[in-house]
């Protein structure tokens, strides 16, 4: 029997509530609000309370999928990234950098968001960057 409580931050929105993941016998069984966290002070919204469900969900994507002629095929990461890069390059070459937009998210970290906008501005060459928090 093992029971662990792993402190973390909710990844759903920009508020960044403190959560505790409850891990029993190596299995993620629940999410709790962190009582002493200065941001949420022991409270969570319904998304935070159910964080563990998207981790254990049957529907979670575990591999990159490539849409070829309407069929989703499982491919390796190198193939998936290579394909995406080729298509992006072609689109930028044909229609210009402003034909591309980058949507970033509260569900990724600050640093990843920074990288994404850097990618848009420096690699693609567009200011078309938007974020789900700017509703």
């Amino acid at each position: 029997m093992t029971l662990k409580f792993v402190p973390s931050i909710c990844s759903y929105c920009g508020t960044g509530c403190g959560v505790l993941f409850q891990v029993m016998d190596g299995q993620l069984v629940g999410t709790l609000p962190m009582k002493t966290h200065p941001v949420n002070q022991g409270k969570l919204c319904i998304k935070g309370w159910n964080l563990h469900e998207h981790i254990t969900s049957e529907l979670r994507l575990k591999h990159p999928l490539l849409n070829t002629f309407g069929r989703m095929t499982k491919v390796g990461w190198d193939d998936a990234i290579g394909f995406a890069a080729d298509r992006l390059k072609t689109i930028v070459a044909e229609h210009g950098p402003d034909s591309v937009g980058v949507l970033v998210s509260a569900k990724i970290t600050n640093e990843e968001n920074y990288l994404a906008q850097k990618f848009a501005r420096a690699a693609v060459g567009t200011n078309n960057v938007d974020h789900c928090a700017r509703l």
């Binding site: 402190p7 009582k35 002493t36």
Partner: peptide, 12 residues
């Protein structure tokens, strides 16, 4: 105490 917070813990 964990990361400066009193967190529940299962002692064994």
């Amino acid at each position: 105490m964990d990361c400066g917070h009193p967190l529940p813990h299962a002692f064994t």
